[in-house]
């Protein structure tokens, strides 16, 4: 199980696709036999990143496309969630807990904080006008390991 297993997903920046994205990633990762908590963590971070892409990357314009690349190597899941939208002006500010550029939409400003906390590895690459790419990794402590 050390060779890489990959999948790629591309979909319109529509809010109804948020559930589709997190359920699809969860289904892909389920082959590692994750715990309920690990699965919930992964679903949550996918939801956060995809929602950011839709609301902030594309200003909710459904013409935009969001892509997810997922890979499994050994017991580690890697996710790259990308948009080619607005990009982030001030990355350091955006990563502050409770900061949001859209308070009028009742955003909590907790998206990046959640992604950093729920995953083992977290990296944002963004350039104004050139989209945002979020790369995250998480080690799945497979339930199978308990029996070995």
């Amino acid at each position: 199980m050390s060779a890489s297993n990959e999948m790629r997903l591309a979909f319109s920046a529509r809010s109804e696709n948020e559930a589709f994205a997190r359920i699809t990633v969860a289904a892909f990762v389920s082959q590692l036999d994750p715990t309920m908590e690990e699965l919930n963590d992964l679903k949550t971070v996918v939801s956060e990143a995809v929602t950011n892409a839709i609301i902030h990357g594309y200003d909710s314009d459904p013409a935009g496309m969001v892509t997810i690349e997922a890979s499994i190597v050994g017991d580690t899941v890697s996710l790259v969630i990308k948009d080619s939208g607005n990009g982030i002006e001030d990355l350091e500010l955006a990563r502050q807990p409770l900061f949001t550029s859209k308070p009028e939409l009742e955003r909590s400003g907790m998206g990046f904080t959640i992604m950093e906390n729920f995953m083992d590895g977290f990296e944002v690459i963004s350039e104004p006008g050139n989209g945002t790419s979020i790369a995250m990794t998480k080690r799945i402590e497979s339930k199978k390991a308990l029996f070995n």
């Binding site: 679903k43 939801s47 956060e48 929602t51 939409l105 909590s108």
Partner: peptide, 8 residues
């Protein structure tokens, strides 16, 4: 399930 949009 809930994410940060729920918190908002």
């Amino acid at each position: 399930f809930m994410d940060s949009s729920g918190l908002g």
